[in-house]
Write a protein that binds this DNA or RNA. Structure first.
Lengths: 190, 190
DNA sequence: GTCTATATAGTGATAGAC
DNA sequence: GTCTATCACTATATAGAC
């Protein structure tokens, strides 16, 4: 792996763990086993390296989600599989956590991949919910866009609850509650 | 207002805006109009002052929630009023944002008020949901504890979505989706 | 491309005068 | 109780040798 790649990967890890404000260029270099000069040769500075790291994390998160969302099965199956898939809950969401970082939100370039990722995810879930309505899995009164946003919010909020309590159970509890509500929003097929 | 109070209030503001990692003692002192010596006279250090600030923010959040949650009306009315009440969405949740801070989560003392606040809120909502079931507003198959966690998660996740998109609309969308799901979980009274 | 040296500012705290 | 001085350390770079 190239030095540039190692720097990006180290930045991904540290941004996930400590956020942008809590991560220093020096810490990234040390984890990557690279010197100062090396980092400033490949990137213009902290923000530039962070942008590369955020873009890569966003792409990885999208790919991971698509794995469950594009699987065969009913809409309910796919959404349920996505919600229940194995996660490192107490580490939080590598993308969602960035939305709490003041320097990320303040910089349009750094915020963009975060924004894009959630827009994509909401859109993807809305498609699946619409598909589910067509198949009679869900009530037609259910608004796909609103419900998609709710699903993503439960995931992101589930991480918050779990980390606040230092217990992954709280994530699972919130997901269970959501699946209970979705199950009761059945359509004509039930 | 005493110097100690001004320091706590400044710390509350800065913790809300920039988190624990992103807030320096110096910045707190300047916002409070106090010198170094003053801060270290009243508090043993940054963590001690932050703890006082977090406790105060937690108490304020609880009081604000209780205002809607203890209002007269049906369970649905009270939950809906709480979810739809005016919020400074783009600033995020002063307590929830702390769950993303590595130094808060790593320190049991600093995490405690955050944990307590969410535990209280989930418990309070579960009570109201149980009450709603008794009144026939909600299906008895709905698990109050799970659903309460889901409601809190939608709120916390709503902040994440709004900040990621720099638009409060995304918070409202997630809430609307949740109210749609809750409305479809009606019990015998519907 | 990578290294070391150096620079400027900020961090988190202590010391001691007033 | 509050102030200023000082401290060791870190943050985020730039410069220039190799």
């Amino acid at each position: 792996m190239s030095t540039s790649d190692r720097l990006i990967e180290s930045a991904q890890d540290l941004l996930w763990e400590r956020g942008y404000v809590g991560t220093s260029p020096k810490a990234i270099q040390q984890r990557a086993g690279a010197g100062q000069g090396s980092m400033y040769h490949h990137f213009t500075g902290k923000a530039d390296l962070a942008l590369a790291a955020i873009r890569r994390s966003a792409a990885e998160m999208r790919a991971a989600a698509e794995e469950q969302l594009s699987a065969p099965g009913s809409a309910t199956d796919r959404i349920s599989a996505y919600l229940r898939r194995e996660r490192d809950v107490l580490r939080g969401c590598p993308i969602g956590r960035l939305s709490q970082d003041p320097d990320i939100v303040a910089d349009a370039h750094l915020r963009q991949p975060v924004d894009d990722t959630f827009a994509w995810l909401r859109g993807r879930l809305a498609e699946i919910l619409t598909d589910g309505q067509a198949r009679g899995e869900f009530d037609h009164a259910l608004d796909p866009d609103d419900t998609a946003a709710t699903i993503v919010a439960v995931l992101q909020g589930g991480y918050v609850l779990a980390r606040a309590a230092d217990s992954a159970d709280h994530f699972d509890t919130a997901i269970r509650g959501l699946l209970g509500l979705l199950g009761r929003a059945g359509g004509s097929a039930r």
